[in-house]
Amino acid sequence: MELCSILCVLIIIILLFYCFFELHYFLRMILTLALARLTKKKAHIMDLTTINSICLTNDIDTLITHMNNSRYLRELDFARVDFYERTALYKTIRNKGGGIVQGSTTIRYRRFIKPFSIFQITTKIVYWDDQSIFIEHRFIGKDEFIHAIAICKQRLINCSAEDIMDVMLSETPTHADSTEKLENGDLVRYKPDMPLEILKWNESNEISSANLRKI
């Protein structure tokens, strides 16, 4: 009887957690972090990292034919945590006394992801300025088709993104696809040119900000 009562209390507690918190999200976040820290190789800051995922029944929309649009953005949280841990980007920012928040996101959907489909999310840094780091994510199906592409502007607080990237590039080995090149025998670090889509996106965000300031 005692065991039965204990089990009932545990079930009630679990149900309450599910009611008041998205428990599945927190559990998966812990799992993603543990896998990145314990089972995956460390990555260079300019590396492209990959996580695997699957569209489950709690990811689909009311049409029951494809993944809900909002779930794409939710999946990016797990991709970023994996990237932050494996590259030590978040650790470096914290060591400098800074923080990082999501400044803005843009996503383009190309083809829906069907229920129970397995897909990958790739993550890489494509540009940075003094305040922000721009990260590109791609949702890639088993047929290598890019189902969606997202760009996230990660805003750094209390530290400079330029300084953080300089530290990251100097502390990690030279990488074939990095911004490091030899010039007259010296190692010179080049920042990549701003991609056109980010240039136009920033212009759009600035117009939006200007309109909001008028209100």
Rank of each mutant, 00 (worst) to 15 (best):
M1S: 15
I6M: 12
L7K: 14
C8K: 12
V9G: 03
V9M: 12
I13G: 06
I13W: 12
L15D: 03
F17Q: 09
F17T: 02
F17R: 04
Y18L: 11
E22Q: 11
M29E: 01
I30R: 08
L31F: 11
T32W: 01
A34E: 00
L35K: 12
L35W: 01
A36K: 07
R37V: 02
A43F: 01
H44S: 09
H44I: 00
D47W: 04
L48K: 15
N52I: 01
N52F: 09
C55P: 01
N58S: 10
D59S: 07
D59C: 05
D59Y: 03
I60L: 02
D61V: 04
L63N: 14
L63W: 05
M67V: 10
S70E: 10
R71L: 06
R71N: 14
L73E: 11
L73W: 07
R74E: 12
E75Y: 04
E75C: 10
L76I: 11
F78L: 10
A79C: 03
R80N: 10
R80S: 10
V81M: 13
D82V: 04
E85D: 03
R86H: 12
R86D: 11
T87E: 06
T87H: 10
A88F: 10
N95R: 15
V101S: 08
V101M: 12
V101P: 05
G103L: 13
T105K: 06
T106G: 03
T106V: 02
F112E: 15
I113H: 10
F116Y: 15
S117D: 14
Q120L: 11
I121L: 12
T122L: 07
T122G: 08
K124A: 12
K124D: 00
V126C: 14
Y127L: 06
Y127W: 12
D130R: 15
S132F: 00
S132R: 13
I133L: 11
F134T: 07
F134D: 08
I135L: 10
F139Y: 15
F139D: 08
I140N: 04
I140Y: 03
D143P: 01
E144V: 07
E144R: 13
F145L: 07
I146M: 03
H147P: 02
H147W: 05
I149A: 01
I151C: 11
C152D: 02
C152W: 02
Q154W: 01
R155D: 01
I157P: 07
C159V: 15
A161P: 11
E162N: 15
D163G: 00
M165I: 05
D166E: 15
V167D: 15
T172V: 01
P173W: 09
S178E: 04
E180K: 14
E183T: 05
D186L: 14
L187P: 00
L187N: 09
V188D: 05
R189W: 06
R189F: 06
K191S: 03
P192N: 04
P192D: 00
M194P: 00
E197N: 13
W201M: 11
W201V: 01
W201A: 12
E203K: 13
E203D: 14
E203N: 13
N205Q: 15
N205F: 03
E206R: 01
S209N: 12
S209W: 07
A210F: 09
N211T: 03
L212A: 14
I215E: 06
I215V: 06
